[in-house]
């Protein structure tokens, strides 16, 4: 039950992205900008991805991260941001306790 008033720096996606940048890595940041229905992660949630496909954070319950990571590689390459839209699979929606499905919009941009 213990929760903390301070950032968990080892798991915070934006802190991790800053660290990657300091180490000279190319980084993409994905952000949930809109949700409909039973989206598992709230608007504002981040997934950060480096050029090797390493990632931290989440934009869904795990069902669309793979697709976002592969899009991120293109975004890092081109430098052009993209807006992605996903229907969250019913199975995932079921797992998070809501059986009605959901949709999310994810904005993917390069850091720098």
């Amino acid at each position: 039950m213990q929760n903390t008033a301070h950032l968990d720096e080892s798991r915070d996606p934006l802190i991790i992205a800053e660290g990657w940048m300091k180490n000279g890595k190319d980084v993409a940041i994905a952000t949930v900008v809109e949700t409909w229905g039973s989206a598992p992660r709230p608007v504002g949630s981040h997934l950060v991805i480096d050029a090797e496909g390493n990632f931290h954070g989440s934009v869904s319950g795990g069902c669309v991260e793979g697709a976002v990571v592969s899009e991120a590689a293109d975004v890092i390459e081109s430098g052009k941001p993209r807006m992605l839209e996903f229907g969250v699979a019913d199975e995932t929606a079921w797992q998070v306790g809501l059986s009605c499905g959901g949709r999310i919009k994810v904005y993917v941009e390069r850091l720098g």
Binding site: L14, A17, E18, M21, I29, E109, R110, L111, G112
Partner: peptide
């Protein structure tokens, strides 16, 4: 995202 803005944030 602008790296400077990420650092400031």
């Amino acid at each position: 995202m602008d790296p400077l803005h990420l650092k400031k944030l």
